[in-house]
């Protein structure tokens, strides 16, 4: 069974366990019915994108604060879907990583469909010091490798965080770039290098 199907089955089972306080309110049901009426496909943004997947539903129903037991189980399930490079090498080329971090291209109705897409990283994070136009939705990643090191464990953490941010924080606002097939293995390795390589301007 593929990972998405497994997650949705697990999510459905867990939804039943959510306390009554989080049961769908009348307004949420009305909002969903309304949106299903109101949205139409444009370009690659198909109308079915309005439907929540199991994880989104849990975050939506609990105001992004799911009960701890449910969060832990679903985070583990997201983690189980992370695919690492076959050769075990997680550090790519930081120069290429910088280009991926700069680009916000992809998945909107005005973008050309298909890969490669950008990482949108600078939209939300401060990263290399030269780029002063950075967003603040996420924490600063400046000096990330200098502060956290460049060990095998840290490399694995950063690779899996980019692959699926929800494997650490179920209702993270950061997209699941590898899980949804947006960023490829090599692109994620290049981003790991941008954050961790001692030669990267992030760590100078």
């Amino acid at each position: 069974m593929n990972i998405t199907a497994r997650i949705s089955i697990l999510a459905t089972a867990l939804l039943a366990a959510i306390p009554a306080a989080f049961a769908d309110g009348d307004h949420r049901a009305k909002a969903i019915a309304m949106m299903k009426q109101d949205f139409v496909t444009k370009g690659q943004a198909t109308a079915d994108r309005i439907s929540e997947d199991g994880l989104q539903a849990i975050c939506n129903r609990t105001g992004n604060k799911p009960p701890e037991t449910i969060a832990k189980q679903l985070e583990a399930d997201q983690m189980a879907g992370v695919k690492y490079p076959a050769d075990g090498k997680l550090l790519g080329d930081w120069k290429s990583g910088e280009k991926i971090a700069q680009s916000g291209r992809g998945f909107t109705w005005s973008d050309e469909p298909g890969l490669p897409v950008g990482g949108n990283c600078y939209n939300c994070h401060q990263i290399a010091p030269k780029e002063t136009s950075f967003g603040t939705v996420g924490p600063t990643l400046f000096q990330f490798g200098k502060l956290r090191g460049n060990t095998a464990d840290i490399q694995k953490y950063v690779y899996s965080k980019i692959y699926n941010s929800k494997s650490y924080n179920l209702c993270s606002e950061m997209p699941r770039f590898g899980h949804i097939g947006a960023l490829r293995e090599q692109q994620i390795k290049d981003l790991v290098a941008l954050l961790l390589d001692p030669e990267s301007p992030v760590n100078k």
Partner: peptide
């Protein structure tokens, strides 16, 4: 509050 779509 409603999260959906490829980027959640």
């Amino acid at each position: 509050n409603y999260r959906a779509g490829p980027y959640d």
